[in-house]
Design a protein around this nucleic acid. Structure first.
Length: 529
RNA sequence: GGUCCAUUCGUCUAUCGGUUAGGACGCCAGGUUUUCAUCCUGGAAAGAGGGGUUCGACUCCCCUAUGGACUACCA
């Protein structure tokens, strides 16, 4: 506790110059605000992770808010998917959708906050900082076609159909008649807008390059993202907005909105995260890249309710959530040490926005596999045996738990995933039905059957079938007969396993037992050649 | 096209003016092993280009190049 306290003090001190005294003690409150338009992309997962790490590092709150202001793009099931994915990854929500108790600022779905926004839209309208526009999509398209680089702004709004060009009466009439309209922000041209970014420093924009963005649409009585986002962040007392770099171009609009709404003093701090890029070439990582290169880009499997299309997820691909978190945490952030393996708590302790890199990170799937391998080795044999058990049940294989734990201990280091364990250990459960042709050619000589027959007699006489005992006896026999060690052992392995792979031979036969070992040797002698 | 952001090994990155430019993944070689894998050891591998500033630039500034994001009544 004391430790945490001193950390957060340190953090606040570093920003002291940017804060007024009262402002300095503001509690850290961050939000992850996805739109429920489908499965949560892995880049979004990383954004959620960084928000979470930052919040927990500073003893703050992590909120989940659903930005469903686009009724047309709503996809059923997406919200549940997001909640389930975060839960699986261990990204705990303190407040909002999916939290144990929703929280003081409910509701947390923007569609349910409809009534709230209108007030602020009106405030802007009354202050002359926004206006009503009636231009239809077709008219806008026509303008875009006619005027190169058309932008709805100070230079063009006088040409359009809006409350700036129409009389107040006519505007009221049109609205009363049920004509659809939007409310646009009225941006004053040629002003400098400075965005302070915690990762990139100060970024300056000229207001002339920002268009009069739609803030509100009468069609569904809902604000657009920009408006809803700013209003909600304000009302929910968000202290830091940590989001993807794709939002950087609209950050000045948000800064302006805080200003127009009179909230500059409590505007959150911004941090725009670098993008997750596709592994080959450039560009944002997309679902298509996953399909094309054969790796998941979603945390969980997802079936699109509209298209019926399914996408694979990390969970179902056999990843441990800890491995995914660890892997993702290092795509755009590093601790400054040479540590690679981090528990969630270690990430929380060490995370810092000023160690987030500025440039995009290409998604390296191979490294992801390595992380899972590491975590697999870190798990206890009992735990893995339990997971492996489920795979065996599907194959109708029943195995003694003690024996299974032993098998796991022998093969787990050779696997990246629990689901690879079967390929590494199937011979423990099922006798080989065929034998690797290359190995036969190389290791199964004319004299081999006779030697294997001798081996059967030898093993049959052994009382103690432990690895130590069998190894000693078999090696003595090989030495006494002056057989070639490699020749015997490889033929032995071929007979028992069917392939030139697997752990120590004597460990294998100890688990198989004398009877099964001898049976397999007999089968091999009969069938090979 | 416009605006903004970015640029160190193939990839993720360290370096916050002075280092033999470090680590990890992957790759290659060697070792361990009765096999395969693991593991261990070693190796190849980087400051986009050009100007400045400075005693000294990967590091600071400018230009160029390249890449990316954004540019909807989507988020």
């Amino acid at each position: 506790m004391l430790f945490l306290h001193s950390i957060s003090n340190l953090y606040f001190q570093s920003l002291e110059s940017n804060f007024k005294k009262k402002y300095r003690m503001r509690k850290v409150r961050v939000r992850f605000a996805p739109s429920p338009t489908g499965a949560l992309h892995i880049g979004g997962v990383r954004t959620a992770l960084y928000n979470y790490l930052f919040a927990k590092k500073h003893g703050g709150d992590m909120l989940l808010r659903i930005e469903d202001t686009d009724s047309a793009r709503f996809v059923p099931g997406a919200e549940d998917y997001i909640v389930e994915a975060l839960q699986w990854l261990g990204i705990n929500i303190d407040e909002g959708v999916g939290a144990a108790s929703e929280g003081a600022f409910a509701p947390y779905r923007q569609s349910e906050r409809k009534a709230i926004y209108r007030k602020y839209v009106d405030q802007l309208l009354e202050a002359g900082l926004a206006y009503v526009a009636f231009d239809t999509p077709a008219q806008l398209d026509a303008q875009r076609a006619e005027i190169a680089n058309f932008q709805y702004d100070a230079s063009t709004r006088g040409l359009m159909t809006n409350s700036l060009t129409l009389s107040a009466d006519e505007v009221n009439q049109r609205i009363a008649a049920g004509e659809q309209y939007v409310v646009r922000i009225k941006i004053a041209p040629n002003e400098e807008i400075k965005v302070q970014d915690l990762i990139r420093g100060e970024v300056v924009f000229n207001s002339s390059v920002i268009d009069d963005k739609v803030l509100f649409k009468s069609s569904d009585e809902l604000p657009t993202y920009h408006m809803a986002n700013v209003v909600d962040d304000y009302l929910m007392q968000i202290s830091h907005v940590i989001r993807g770099e794709e939002w950087l171009p609209s950050a000045p609009l948000h800064v302006l909105l805080y200003k127009y709404l009179g909230w500059s003093e409590v505007m959150p701090e911004f941090a725009h995260l670098p993008l997750l890029l596709k592994p080959d070439g450039n560009g944002k990582l997309s679902k298509r890249d996953g399909d094309r290169l054969g790796f998941p880009v979603f945390p969980l499997n997802w079936k699109d309710p509209k298209t019926g299309e399914t996408s694979s997820g990390y969970r179902e691909a056999g990843y441990f959530p800890e491995a995914v978190v660890n892997f993702l945490s290092l795509l755009g952030w590093n601790s400054g040490t040479e540590q690679e393996i981090f528990s969630m708590q270690e990430l929380i302790d060490q995370f810092s926005l000023d160690r987030v890199s500025k440039s995009g990170a290409k998604f390296d799937y191979e490294k992801g596999k390595w992380f899972n391998h590491k975590y697999l080795q870190l798990k206890s044999d009992d735990e893995i045996a339990d997971m492996f058990q489920r795979i065996l049940i599907e194959k109708d294989i029943v195995e003694d738990t003690q024996k299974l734990v032993k098998i796991v201990s022998l093969v787990k280091e050779r696997a990246n995933f629990v689901n690879e364990l079967w390929a590494q250990s199937s011979f423990f459960f099922v006798a080989p039905t065929e034998y690797d042709a290359k190995t036969i050619q190389k290791r199964w000589k004319a004299e081999t059957p006779a030697q294997m027959t001798e081996l059967i007699t030898l093993l049959d006489a052994i009382e103690d079938f432990s690895p130590v005992a069998t190894e000693e006896i078999v090696k003595e026999w090989i030495a006494a007969k002056e057989y070639n060690m490699g020749g015997i052992m490889n033929a032995f392995r071929l007979s028992i396993v069917g392939e030139p792979k697997g752990p120590h031979m004597f460990d294998i036969i100890a688990l198989l037992g004398k009877e099964e070992t001898i049976a397999r040797l007999k089968t091999a002698i009969e069938n090979i050649k």
